[in-house]
């Protein structure tokens, strides 16, 4: 499976087919026995997850309950010991792009599903990752919010110019977002037709 740089790849598969496991391998959270994982021509197969530069939005969002939205967006840059001005600029920029500027001082508790999803997306994008991995990011949203999030994902991936791998079992979602589409069947990844975007 190869996703060209800056493109939006979608991996489809049934529930339990191993989509999340593949993401975990790319993220380095799970070791692989055979094969290689290359990001921008660099072999990262044995690289520590922290060194891979892959942003991750898990299915359950896994927000940090004790942190404010601002702290979520600043977290990765704080770990990298970026200066306050750089952090603030990035946080404000992301918050505006994701339309969560009004939520910056709130904690995840009480945020709607869509708002939490945007915070998780902002947290993953904050350190300008080489690749963004999205695990069923729209599965728990109602149809209206899902449409809005689809549009947001499209806009933000274009704006950030980040290579994205989005796993889902939803065909409509895949059609709207994918530059290249893959399917996971019986443990094997097969490319489907490319550039099937309907928009």
């Amino acid at each position: 499976m190869t996703v060209p740089a800056g493109k939006y790849g979608v991996l489809m598969g049934r529930t339990g087919s191993g989509k999340t496991t593949i993401l975990e391998c790319i993220l380095g959270l799970r070791t692989i026995e055979t094969g290689t994982i290359r990001l921008a021509d660099e072999d990262v197969t044995r690289l520590n997850p922290a060194m891979r530069g892959v942003g991750y939005v898990p299915q359950d969002k896994a927000l940090f309950s004790k942190m404010t939205v601002r702290e979520h967006l600043a977290f990765a840059l704080s770990i990298r010991q970026a200066s306050n001005s750089v952090i603030n600029e990035r946080v404000d920029d992301l918050a505006e792009s994701l339309n969560i500027s009004h939520l910056l001082e709130r904690t995840p508790r009480g945020l709607s599903g869509g708002e939490q999803q945007r915070v998780a997306l902002g947290r993953a994008l904050s350190f300008r990752p080489r690749v963004l991995c999205l695990d069923e990011p729209l599965s728990a949203l109602d149809s209206e919010t899902r449409k809005q999030m689809c549009q947001l994902l499209e806009d933000i991936s274009r704006k950030e110019q980040v290579t994205t791998l989005h796993v889902t079992h939803n065909v409509d979602e895949a059609r709207q977002l994918a530059d290249c589409l893959f399917q996971l069947v019986d443990g094997k990844i097969e490319p489907l037709e490319t550039a099937i975007k309907t928009t």
């Binding site: 380095g28 959270l29 922290a50 991750y56 896994a62 770990i79 990298r80």
Partner: peptide, 18 residues
């Protein structure tokens, strides 16, 4: 506590200890 939070923190650049 959801172990996924910790995994996300690691992908964001943290060591296990961090």
């Amino acid at each position: 506590i959801n172990p996924r939070s910790e995994q996300v923190a690691i992908t964001l650049g943290c060591s296990r200890a961090q």
